[in-house]
């Protein structure tokens, strides 16, 4: 009998159990990755972190992230020396005023410079699907395509709510 008093108050709203809440959250993360064109990549050299902006794409299961860079850049040199990287995808530029509406996905993992022709072709499709304007850039012989294999993913929303998972 006390149930009613205890429960959320809004009518016509079905309460979400943990299962459906997870589905909703995963959808939200997928949407974040689809909606955002740019991300922040963190590389490191001699213990000094270094951040750069990148255009990125992810695969459907969020296990791989792709970006491209000319091979002369600082970030390329750093990740060649140390494969451990971190990438931040967030929507702060969409909603500059709302602390509670910002969400961010941090991916930590290993970067690999693709050299296999087949792999390069597949990754280019994923990248160009989202960034068709980068066609010339990506197909340039001086551009390298990087594949980041995600080890851990951390999703932050509502200022302080955090979920984590490991794809493997």
């Amino acid at each position: 009998m006390r149930k009613k008093y205890d429960e959320p108050m809004f009518v016509n709203v079905t309460a979400c159990d943990s299962q459906c809440a997870e589905k909703e959250t995963l959808k939200e993360i997928q949407k974040l990755c689809d909606d955002q064109n740019f991300a922040v990549l963190a590389t490191q050299g001699d213990g000094q972190p270094y951040t750069s902006l990148i255009s990125f794409s992810v695969n459907d299961s969020l296990t791989k992230l792709y970006f491209s860079t000319p091979s002369q850049t600082r970030k390329f040199n750093l990740l060649e020396k140390n494969h451990l990287v971190s990438v931040l995808i967030d929507n702060r530029s969409d909603l500059p005023t709302g602390l509670n509406q910002i969400s961010g996905l941090t991916i930590t993992g290993t970067a690999k410079v693709l050299s296999d022709e087949d792999q390069i072709k597949k990754a280019s499709v994923v990248l160009l699907d989202k960034h068709p304007y980068l066609q010339r850039f990506i197909q340039s012989s001086t551009t390298k395509i990087i594949e980041v294999s995600a080890e851990h993913l951390y999703y932050v929303r509502r200022f302080q709510e955090v979920f984590e998972w490991s794809p493997r």
Partner: peptide
């Protein structure tokens, strides 16, 4: 006061808010 409103009103999904929390 916008940020205070924002923090209070989007702290959690509205449909999970109870009477007393509101």
């Amino acid at each position: 006061l916008e940020q205070i409103l924002n923090l209070e009103l989007y702290r959690k999904p509205f449909e999970q808010m109870r009477w007393e929390e509101l």
